[in-house]
Design a protein around this nucleic acid. Structure first.
Lengths: 234, 234
DNA sequence: ATATATTGAATGAATATTCAGCAAGTATGT
DNA sequence: ACATACTTGCTGAATATTCATTCAATATAT
């Protein structure tokens, strides 16, 4: 149990180093052989996000994912059956994470429509969600979504459900203060703006999360002057 | 000169039909063997845009492009050396076309900052530029751009140059009417919104060019009330 | 011991690239 | 006019490469 691996030692050491930090931190199985099925799946999903962010969709290979996870070539097919399944699971994971974060923000927000809208906008630019790495992975899927119904459904879930909430919040504000604008139109432009800001963050021409968030707030203040200030909902 | 091709007739007929209308309409060489080098390149670029729109970046193959153009398998390597070159030429073409359209819109616009800004916004949602087909092709490249410097440069050209114009136009309007907002922030949110609208048009959940344009106008009117109306610049 | 997770070399399918040859046009010689 | 050589766009079968998938062997856990 102690000797044996003199020859393989180096390779193993390299692998250990490659394992993502998220998984290294204990949890259930940790790493090595002990990792539970679910842990290993998560580890591979994280490696997939890394690869998508680093090399884009077209250049993401199972070999790269396996290397990134510090595991061997056949590992993905063992845990996910196919590359396609891995990619779908990855997108599913990101969609779930986004949805959970979004719902949590709505929970924590106050009762008023203004504070809810404010909270939703803030949530989109939160550290946890709005990473260059994750934005890049989203974008990789977006690029393929139009020609792949499965991806489109998972990406679109984001739009459909959330856009409806935006619309009704905008409608509430309108009813309260009698803004002249059409609620749907405003919700559309707000949502589109935030998506565009995400996109530019990903492309990364010196735009920061803070600036993007500030631009969104500027929009809220100018469209809903009776409800919003630069520092929060009234 | 008349007989000979009895055997190949059918195949040739099919090919002729597949040739895009744009190329069929005379110009220099027309089609068949006569097509000039430049015409053929353009024909292949159009077929590439078709393939990108239909199948996405990852699924676009040279075979599909060749089939779409009604030509044989080796044709792309003959005219472009490599797939990579074809894709770069395609993106270059789209970027040039966009830029030319944009510049033309600026030329035709009036002198005032308000009418220039109005014209630029309208240009983005013009029939010629804003096709589902072309938006899909743009999106295919966007998805790969982050991991490919060449693509990023060509996609980014759009942002850098045009964003600066947006900023100075917004600054002019601010100087004229003393709006309280920061010009850069407003230009950022406006540009991001338009990109986001493009993106949603491509995803196509019932959003139309007209609605997208209307949303942009709503934004202009609400941010620059002293300069814009729903029907045009003051 | 047995079951399970993992490895990594082998396999095969997809597809980019190459290239020898074909055919339509063009120039030159008779 | 006609024949001959030459150029050039194009073809499509052959080749090379990349990569997902498989699976027999191996390591580890219970």
């Amino acid at each position: 149990m102690t000797v044996v691996l003199s020859l393989k030692g180096k390779k193993v050491a390299l692998r250990m180093k490659a394992v993502s930090a998220a998984v290294e931190a204990g949890e259930k199985g940790g790493r090595g052989r002990k990792a539970s099925k679910e842990t290993r799946r998560q580890q591979l999903i994280e490696a997939t996000i890394d690869s998508l962010a680093k090399r884009g969709y077209a250049e993401t290979t199972l070999a790269d994912v396996a290397d990134g996870a510090g595991l061997s070539r056949g590992i993905v097919n063992f845990h996910f059956e196919s590359k396609e399944n891995l990619l779908i699971a990855t997108l599913q994971f990101m969609a779930d994470e986004y949805g959970a974060h979004w719902s949590a923000a709505l929970e924590k927000a106050g009762e008023s429509a203004a504070s809810r809208l404010w909270a939703l906008v803030a949530a989109d630019f939160d550290r946890k969600i709005c990473t260059k790495r994750k934005l890049a992975a989203w974008c990789a899927f977006w690029g393929e979504a139009k020609s792949r119904p499965t991806y489109q459904a998972l990406c679109g879930a984001r739009d459909v459900k959330y856009q409806d909430t935006f619309i009704s919040l905008c409608a509430e504000l309108k009813a309260e203060a009698g803004y002249g604008y059409d609620a749907e139109t405003i919700a559309l432009s707000l949502g589109a703006m935030m998506e565009g800001l995400w996109f530019r963050l990903m492309m990364g021409d010196g735009l920061t999360r803070e600036k993007a968030h500030a631009a969104s707030i500027e929009y809220l203040v100018s469209v809903f002057p009776g409800h919003m200030t630069h520092h929060g909902p009234k």
